[in-house]
Design a protein around this nucleic acid. Structure first.
Lengths: 221, 221
DNA sequence: GTCTATATATCGATAGAC
DNA sequence: GTCTATCGATATATAGAC
């Protein structure tokens, strides 16, 4: 019976402190993930160094590797949280909704996402740009299935005479491109507009024009 | 008079061969530039190694550094040729043209550029995505001036009652995004369409929808 | 869990023989 | 101009004391 008092595999040592178990782990992981999103966005996966991420997160590099064994594992965790947020913005596109309101809300949400989380968009863009080495499987799998469901909603609206017929997949590709460009290429837009950085009014102008283009193409204006 | 037979500074040794002077240099530089555009596109500047570029160009790494002293210098040369081609596609946008035909031709040309030179678009995208470290100056300078001239053409059409009033700069940003996404994110579009790679029909569908969106937003459909 | 020191690998760039 | 060998810098990842 010598082994009966050992913790079961995977369980944690009993803690008598007030701090909830794993609280420090969660705190440090969150700090690292936030710093990683920023550095991966600004430099790309290859140029991002774990040393830079650790410095911004405010802890030694060895600690980062204690929480995330490899740079690749850290990167995948960052990517996953980004994809989750990315999928969520399409919630307005559902069968019961009014096409004009749903598409307007979707575009507004995507532009807002670009404004508030430009780093997330850039990490995702960098991943796709270089061949999607870490998420090609998901693109061909669950994300393709998810997109097809959203496209059936659009096609349902068209079939019901609520909007014109359009190529739904390409409609999504173009909406993504037109909205995410204000995150991914914000530096270009700002420079060409003669600003140091984009202003709220710029995002409003972008939202208005993208919305006009989509609605008029769908016969909804 | 011992020195009179030496070549003047900067001149080349007299060649008696049939090959034109500097032909080999041009050949090798072209090979390197082509290989570099591909590797910079696929891997990004940071991840691209001069060894990989040299291997694809078919010569030893030391030779690459003989023709281009640094990786950065090679990159800048690649970027410049890309920007030149990028500017050229906007030729149809000129004051004397008919707005409908001009915008349609511009969009068609941009989609064609994405199809034929996806590497060029990706190198440019990667540059902007990570803060445009090598071309921020041009964006704030000659490219901004160039864009403003193109915007005055659009605004002239609107003032003449030939098309609706739109925010010209954002119109360009969105056309760039919607057309370049078929190069930059070709992997994503192909995966979500269930293909190994994009087909001519996909580019036609993209061109048709982008054109419809732009023309209808400009009151031209 | 934390942190210093370091092993190991890779890359950009160049020296120097041909 | 070409190419082998190599230097120096920097990166990821880990060992091991605390």
């Amino acid at each position: 019976m010598a082994l009966t008092n050992l913790p079961a595999p995977g369980s944690r040592t009993i803690q008598m402190k007030k701090r909830p178990i794993g609280a420090k782990r969660r705190l440090n992981e969150t700090r690292i993930l936030r710093a990683a999103e920023r550095v991966f966005a600004e430099q790309g996966f290859a140029a991002a160094s774990t040393a830079a991420i650790a410095r911004i997160a405010g802890l030694p590099k060895a600690n980062l590797h204690y929480y995330f064994r490899t740079k690749e594992a850290l990167y995948r965790r960052v990517l996953e949280s980004i994809i989750a947020g990315w999928v969520e913005t399409a919630d307005p596109i559902e069968a019961g909704a009014d096409p004009r309101r749903a598409l307007s809300a979707y575009i507004a949400g995507k532009i807002e996402y670009s404004r508030l989380r430009p780093h997330a968009s850039k990490v995702f863009a960098n991943e796709i740009l270089h061949g999607a080495p870490s998420i090609a499987g998901r693109l061909r799998g669950d994300l393709k299935t998810w997109l097809e469901a959203k496209c059936r909603v659009i096609e349902g609206w068209s079939a019901a005479g609520k909007m014109a017929r359009v190529d739904a997949k390409h409609l999504f590709f173009i909406i993504w491109a037109a909205t995410q460009t204000y995150a991914d290429f914000d530096v270009q837009a700002a420079a060409l507009l003669g600003r140091r950085k984009l202003r709220p009014a710029d995002y409003r102008a972008a939202r208005a024009l993208v919305t006009l283009m989509v609605l008029s193409a769908c016969g909804l204006s």
